[in-house]
């Protein structure tokens, strides 16, 4: 199958992430990497094609120059080619504009059977781009998959909610998002790392996609961030060492706060 995996280059969640003066995410101050949750999407695509009749896995990202690292990681894992949408006008794009650019890039890649994404980015964490892509591309969505199989042109997933577990089917082509329960992403092998250097990566600007620059970027966003505030550090609480009465002390604390 021909599969496009949408990936995002994000600031490392282990670092102290912050904002620029225009309230966009600061993508310079801390090191970036392929969003951890997108590794599951890359793995899912590779596993499908290894088990099936083959086809190409394309890793697609949009973002600044450094975002090429996210593509590189996908190629090292085993994807066949990369597409990087790189254009200064994109900076500050919200999910709406992101989905517009990605949808046009997917169209340009050519006929695809599946578009696979992670369940959320680890920075914006909205989980809305897969549904927006499905809407824009006119495709069915089968999202938050904890299991994914494709047979006879039908994608079938298991989606675990808080009150029920559902099996959902849709004919290809479809948009699929996968959770971190679906697989165990592989580490790139030495061979994979060497092979990745020879794999094709195309860099496209908005002009290549036919996207009007006025529709993307911070100024085009349909929402306006008015302010960003660091959460005040929580007042230091009381920490005691259990010397045999810790449980009673805990019950006493909860009673004093009216929880008992």
């Amino acid at each position: 199958m021909n599969i496009v995996v949408c990936v995002k280059y994000v600031p490392d969640a282990q670092s102290d992430r912050s904002f620029e003066s225009d309230f966009t995410t600061d993508r310079e101050a801390v090191d970036g990497l392929l969003s951890e949750l997108d590794e599951y999407a890359v793995e899912a695509a590779l596993a499908l094609n290894e088990a099936g009749e083959g086809g190409e896995v394309t890793v697609l990202t949009m973002g600044p120059e450094d975002a090429a690292d996210a593509i590189k990681k996908g190629l090292q894992m085993g994807a066949d080619k990369g597409v990087h949408v790189l254009d200064e006008a994109i900076a500050g794009s919200d999910a709406v504009a992101t989905s517009l650019v990605l949808a046009e890039a997917i169209r340009k890649v050519g006929p695809v059977d599946l578009v696979i994404t992670g369940l959320a980015s680890t920075d914006g964490a909205m989980s809305v781009v897969p549904a927006m892509l499905a809407e824009r591309l006119g495709l069915p969505q089968v999202t938050f998959a904890s299991e994914l199989t494709v047979e006879g042109g039908v994608a079938r997933i298991r989606r675990d909610g808080d009150t029920a577990s559902e099996t959902i089917e849709a004919s290809l082509p479809a948009v699929v998002s996968v959770t971190d329960q679906i697989n165990e992403p592989r580490y790139p092998s030495f061979k994979g790392i060497m092979a990745a250097k020879k794999k094709p990566v195309q860099t496209w600007g908005l002009g290549d996609l036919g996207v009007d620059a006025s529709l993307v970027g911070l100024a085009a966003a349909w929402t306006t961030v008015e302010g960003v505030q660091a959460r005040p550090p929580r007042a230091a609480g009381e920490v005691v060492t259990d010397e045999g009465q810790g449980g009673q002390a805990l019950a006493q604390f909860l009673a004093s706060r009216k929880f008992v």
Binding site: R234, E238, V239, V240, D242, Q245, G246, A249, L250, A251
Partner: peptide, 17 residues
């Protein structure tokens, strides 16, 4: 992060609480 913390073994503290 805590308002109240106990350094101890949960298998002791929780049943007692």
């Amino acid at each position: 992060l805590v308002d109240y913390g106990i350094v101890g073994d949960l298998f002791q503290v929780l049943p007692q609480a």
